[in-house]
Nucleic acid binder design. Structure first.
Lengths: 168, 168
DNA sequence: TCTAACTTTCAAAAGTTATTGAAAGTTTAT
DNA sequence: ATAAACTTTCAATAACTTTTGAAAGTTAGA
């Protein structure tokens, strides 16, 4: 298999994976392209390689920068901006986790807190079941929240060394 | 807050969360509705409560059954089918993990294996970088794969007791 | 200050995914 | 065998998301 073919397959696969992870296809493809590029790339390069429009490239590069998955690199004497990907997978996962936690888990936790206010009427199966289920999910979601926080704060070496060994 | 309001909020929130989790909105809303229902519900009930069409209700109930998140319950002497949700959150997470692993992680691992075939040309920065990045991601993804397998096989009590304590 | 090289925006178009509802299919009871 | 009670299918349509590209905005350096 030659490099072009391999690169293409990888970019496709990363794009598909991304779309399951709250990252849109183009955004993930740009990230993939930068991941395998040994040198920083300009917006022009990215547009040409992925055959996407200027607007699309720009929007998604910005989003990647916001997520902390891509960095801007300025070459002295060049107006143009160049971009590099975060290549440490541990960092990539951490940064995606941070965003998804904020966008997904936290709003749910908020609603769960709110609906705790529903008054339970003794002997009323409907309200009793509701309270029970909400309490249960709340417990679970709070645990997930704490777990993700630890993961986000954890050091890669501790994680790989201690954590992964214990669940084998 | 009264039960109707709380239920509505919860169903909304669960629907939104679901759509970030590979479960479509309606599918997640049906699950939420069944979660807080103290008794099994028929397709009719679900349609009426969520104001969705027969076809939509049917398709998503089947999908929930396929995922193992909802069970069919037959009441003797009644033609109608009734449905109950899996209410154990640990089981819910396990079952979602099984599906997502299959749909997301496994195809990526397959592509990563494939593109390992790209021949590295010594002294060629492009192929060297490509091999390095792929090897790295492969390592990471394989670890994730093993980790999720353990999680899927793990017992809830071990998980809550041992695992969660260690990451605090 | 002005110009050229670049980046950002945004409304319209294309593409994708979910939903409807009527028609077809299935099962049970008589 | 038939009717009634239900479930499933699927083509049309609606809703939502992504992409485009031209126009507007910004900035560095002469």
């Amino acid at each position: 298999m030659d490099l072009q073919e391999g690169k293409g397959k990888f970019i496709q696969a990363w794009g598909t994976l991304g779309s399951h992870w709250g990252i849109n296809r183009t955004m993930a493809q740009i990230h993939a392209l930068l991941l395998v590029s040994p040198t920083p790339m300009s917006a022009e390069n990215i547009m040409a390689d992925l055959k996407i429009s200027r607007g699309n490239a720009n929007m998604n590069i910005r989003a990647l920068i916001d997520w902390g998955l891509v960095y801007k690199e300025l070459v002295p004497g060049q107006r143009k901006e160049f971009f590099v990907a975060e290549k440490n997978m541990w960092e990539v996962v951490r940064k995606i986790t941070i965003q998804r936690k904020k966008k997904e888990l936290e709003p749910v936790l908020k609603v769960l807190q709110e609906v705790t206010q529903v008054e339970e009427i003794q002997g009323n199966a409907e309200t009793e079941e509701f309270s029970k289920v909400i309490k249960d999910i709340n417990l679970f979601a709070s645990k997930a929240d704490t777990t993700l926080d630890s993961l986000v704060k954890a050091d890669q070496h501790w994680f790989v060394g201690t954590f992964l060994k214990m669940i084998k």
